[in-house]
Design a protein around this nucleic acid. Sequence first.
DNA 1: TAATTAGATAAACATATTTTGATGCATTAG
DNA 2: CTAATGCATCAAAATATGTTTATCTAATTA
Lengths: 125, 125
Amino acid sequence: MQDLLSIFKALSEETRLRILKLLENGELCVCDIVAALDMVQPKVSFHLNALKESGFLKDRKQGRWIYYRLDDSDFFRRFLLLSVFERIPKEAIAEDRRRLDDFLENKQTKGGVVPIQNKKRCCGG
Amino acid sequence: MQDLLSIFKALSEETRLRILKLLENGELCVCDIVAALDMVQPKVSFHLNALKESGFLKDRKQGRWIYYRLDDSDFFRRFLLLSVFERIPKEAIAEDRRRLDDFLENKQTKGGVVPIQNKKRCCGG
DNA sequence: TAATTAGATAAACATATTTTGATGCATTAG
DNA sequence: CTAATGCATCAAAATATGTTTATCTAATTA
């Protein structure tokens, strides 16, 4: 019963659904998600941890980044995720997507003609 | 998104899962559920209302009783209910069941040789 | 009609969850 | 080696949820 409860609790928070929806297209590091959601990092980490603890996410460390991705090892959770994705319309997270794309694009530019004020940006410079 | 959230919120509380599981076998009035869960009535009403608001339950009034039953009009919710029932083992709510059966049995005895101290019992005497 | 009963609801209280701000620890870049 | 970066974690504050106690209404029965 506790396992079931933790599954539903994980899915009963808007920020967490937005994170899951962002990860629908593939793994992202914490700073990507922070940029996409436009939230402070500890807040995002808190929700990432909740999703991980309840078996919806896996993570992997690479260099100084930690990448999170959907954990599809459990059938029921996978089904729930599909249901969630299906029921969250694209428009609902259009802003998140846009901020993410902006951010990822800047990442590309690393080492290029990055203006000084960008040299301090995470994942960039 | 809010609709989806309210669905998962409804399912992320133990008392509510117990109520749903009790209703798996058919409708019950509030006092039945109060007896089964051995909780105070306003608490049970609070959770019944949450389940109703999120589309998992329907109610109907009959005399001075209000009967609650599962609302199977929505496919997704119905699927979730099946998943929940499947994942909550019988033993997990054995006590609830026992108290319910005791209570329903006493109801039968209404008007019979009910001892004086039972005449005030709800649904009974 | 008066007393009883089923159940909703509201206010006060208690607990749980989320958010923030600060700090610490790796890892990497300079 | 020293700075900076990415991220976890912790304590405090803020918010949301659940619980209790008291009260109210409608229906019912004596």
